[in-house]
Design a protein around this nucleic acid. Structure first.
Lengths: 150, 150
DNA sequence: TAGACACCCTGTAGTGACTACAGAGTCAAG
DNA sequence: CTTGACTCTGTAGTCACTACAGGGTGTCTA
């Protein structure tokens, strides 16, 4: 199948498929005489695996590790468990951060319920003080609040 | 004060301060005879404002809007309220997504409690199916699960 | 006055996971 | 034979920084 068909089947963008190939997550497929990539069922399954992992917010490097286990069926899967546990930890951490964020934002929002002039806007004033030292941690690969998903 | 002192006072990296200047969030400061940037109290306050906004996970473009209101005290602050409401919406959305993620990850983790061989690992098998169409939305600027904070 | 050392300067490149082109080639239908 | 949909490679852009390289400045001590 062509790259476009693979994209349609998996719900993955064409550029993303080429990107995964470039990153070594997907093996290089065969080519037609006209140099078009041609994929088989096994590529579709592999790509679904990758997209499932991504929809669980795993980083490509984590997925790389899982792929190694997927293709080495005799190894002990303890490392798979550990990877997932770490990842769950990251997600939990990020949820806690965002919840704290949310309550801070709502408290801020409550400072200005009316359409008064910016000069007296409680929100702008609330943002002006000395910076809190909320969250300065450093090794959670789970992104922050603003991202664009396709 | 020098850039290093400003950095120390606000808990912001030196490179980040130069970056904000380059992005037009901080006005260009004066310079000493030796070409060192020199900052005053108003810069420190402005930078604190920006860092507060960032610690609330606002995007630089959102902060730019707030800064315009901060320096135009006579305008009506309704847009400030709207911006914050939108941002709170993004954060709430992201929390909901992550919570769904968390329960999926935990369900997956329960599929393999033992150190069996990867061939029979329930996690790897669970990741293999057709991709769910969980979250395909597109305009939430709140990042995903993996990020590096300073 | 010399040297050491901390600090600062500009500019460029890297991060992660894509996304968006430009400019060209391929293929099937009408 | 033309149209139009699809594909190719390669490069640059996204966001909010971070990390250099290669140089200059300022202050303190010997």
């Amino acid at each position: 199948m062509t790259i476009g068909e693979l994209a349609r089947r998996t719900g993955c963008g064409i550029e993303t498929i080429r990107y995964y190939e470039h990153e070594g997550l997907l093996p290089k497929p065969g080519r037609t005489s006209g140099n078009f990539r041609c994929y088989g069922q096994e590529h579709a399954e592999l790509l679904s695996f990758i997209r499932n992992c991504r929809s669980l917010d795993m980083a490509l490097n984590e997925i790389r590790i899982l792929l190694r286990f997927r293709s080495a069926p005799d190894e002990n899967c303890g490392a798979v468990n550990a990877l997932l546990d770490t990842h769950i930890g990251h997600v939990e951490e990020r949820i806690a951060e965002l919840q704290s964020l949310e309550s801070q934002l709502k408290a801020l929002r409550d400072k200005c319920r009316s359409g008064r002039s910016a000069e007296h806007c409680g929100i702008l004033q609330g943002l002006g003080g000395a910076p809190d030292d909320r969250d300065a941690s450093g090794d959670n690969h789970v992104p922050r609040t603003h991202s664009t998903k396709r």
